[in-house]
Design a protein around this nucleic acid. Structure first.
Length: 256
DNA sequence: ATGCCTAATGCAATTAGA
């Protein structure tokens, strides 16, 4: 069972690239982030024609998350994180698919730091950690997949010293990521490739992809009851080199 | 410290991304 996450940076502007990658990679389940489309503008027909059912939570201009599946219809279990009814941003969607609970998330960027956006990032992270604790406690096989906007360690940044004050690499954000992991989650990419330099994002600026000036910020975390099924994990890095690509590349895992 | 690039909105220039 192949499960992927891909921050598409605009699902309609990215549709040709997304469809090309779906056909090439044939993942069973895909979490998408940054749809940047209102609910009614999600390209449901084109995605259905590619063989995928979908559940999604759109939003005008910003955010937006979806779960695609060609392994049966995804049964939505939640949209939005609990804990703040005033937070209307479309950043979390959860569905049961083929015996697995899949949570697709788009954690806030948080820049500039300090400031209200950074406070929102930390608060959102706290809500994610609280909900993730419930998911682990349930004993269900769960995958948290998405754009976490966190480089966990220095190995995950091309130039750590330049990023130390940034909201993606700030000590309190990295600490939150490890508080989450300490619940028992397995960072699939890092587990399969303990010593490699792995990036999932390259800025559009400064020819970052050609220079491999990247960040590892898209993650797939496995709950204890499913971690033993991990067979493979990797980044479809070449997709970032395609014409009209997102600034992120798709990341995937294969489960027994 | 800022722009470098890109998408969305909406049709110019701003906001946000990371």
């Amino acid at each position: 069972m192949k499960i992927a996450t891909y921050n598409v940076n605009g699902v309609n502007g990215r549709l040709p690239v997304l469809l090309r990658w779906l056909e090439e990679a044939r993942p069973d389940v895909v979490c998408l982030q940054e749809l940047k489309a209102p609910q009614e503008k999600f390209p449901e027909a084109a995605i259905a024609a590619a063989g995928y059912h979908a559940v999604w939570h759109g939003q005008k201009s910003w955010n937006g998350v979806a779960i695609l599946s060609r392994a049966g219809v995804p049964v939505e279990t939640r949209r939005g994180l609990p804990g703040d009814p005033d937070d209307l941003a479309s950043r979390y969607i959860e569905a049961a698919v083929d015996g697995v609970l899949v949570a697709g998330l788009y954690l806030p960027n948080g820049n500039p730091r300090p400031g209200p956006k950074f406070d929102y990032k930390l608060a959102w992270f706290d809500r994610l950690i609280a909900h993730a604790a419930d998911l682990v406690a349930s004993g269900a096989p769960v995958i948290l997949a998405g754009d976490f906007n966190v480089m966990p360690t220095e190995r995950d940044v091309y130039k750590p010293e330049r990023w130390i004050d940034d909201a993606l690499f700030a000590p309190e954000v990295r600490a939150a990521f490890f508080r989450l992991l300490d619940q028992g989650w397995t960072d699939a990419l890092r587990t399969m490739h303990p010593d490699e330099t792995i990036y999932t994002f390259w800025d559009y600026f400064r020819n970052a992809y050609a220079r491999n000036a990247g960040l590892r910020i898209d993650h797939l975390l496995l709950s204890p009851s499913i971690a033993g099924r991990l067979k493979a994990a990797d980044v479809d890095r070449h997709v970032r080199g395609w014409e009209k690509s997102s600034d992120h590349a798709p990341v995937w895992i294969d489960l027994a």
